[in-house]
Design a binder for these strands. Structure first.
Lengths: 112, 112
DNA sequence: TCAACATATGATAATATATTCATATGAACG
DNA sequence: CGTTCATATGAATATATTATCATATGTTGA
């Protein structure tokens, strides 16, 4: 695979983005996969408005609590959202500005 | 679903990105889903270097032609790549700069 | 401590997705 | 026109993913 290298050595054949290894590409696909589900993207979008607890997210998306929790776990594991406990509730929020930017970027693409 | 509206009317409850409808979010997830497969992202990445025909892509990714063609069809349908025929070969290329930017954005997120 | 509430988790079933194999289409050229 | 090369496509299988149901964990306050 000429342009996808096993390590991060300088590539003799190409000069653009030869520093991307196969594993990095797999990670990248993994990241986009997280955004590629409508429930998860609705959750992320819901969190654009600030932090929310699980019950609020369930109400907003009109979905059952278990489904939401399962997806929140995936988002947490991928470090796309953060969580903090306050009493019985757990509040979720977007992890960083990248999340916002990636979504905005996709939005722009679609809106054309 | 307070923050996800069925139409694009002005929202009374929120002021940020209330112009996103549920269908737009589904489209957005659909777009990210395309990037969320390692074969497709390798193809897109391969095309960063300029247009290539199917055989070249197969060689670069070390994958069989049918698998590549199936994924190219998905990329074509989603308008992420363009295709032109030259004799017996069909040359594929990235459709626009957004594709490049979305990938770069994800790459940045990962590299942190 | 126990009941009530909020959230997480495991198992299951339904659905979606990717790859492979076999074959079809389509172009070039003798 | 028939063969060869390049690509596309359909069917089948294997695998991954999601939502649901039932239940577990953890927190609060009586």
């Amino acid at each position: 695979m000429p342009y996808i290298h096993d390590d991060t050595e300088e590539c003799k054949d190409c000069h653009m983005i030869a520093d991307v290894t196969e594993n990095e590409l797999i990670d990248l696909a993994e990241l986009f996969k997280i955004f590629g589900d409508s429930t998860r993207i609705k959750i992320l979008f819901d969190l654009f408005h600030g932090e929310k607890n699980v019950s609020q997210i369930c109400e907003d998306l009109e979905m059952n609590q278990s489904a939401i929790s399962h997806q929140l776990k995936i988002l947490r594991t991928s470090k796309l959202v953060g969580a903090r406990r306050d009493g019985k509730s757990i509040y979720y929020s977007l992890a960083d500005e990248h999340v916002r930017m990636i979504i905005e970027m996709g939005k722009e693409h679609i809106e054309e």
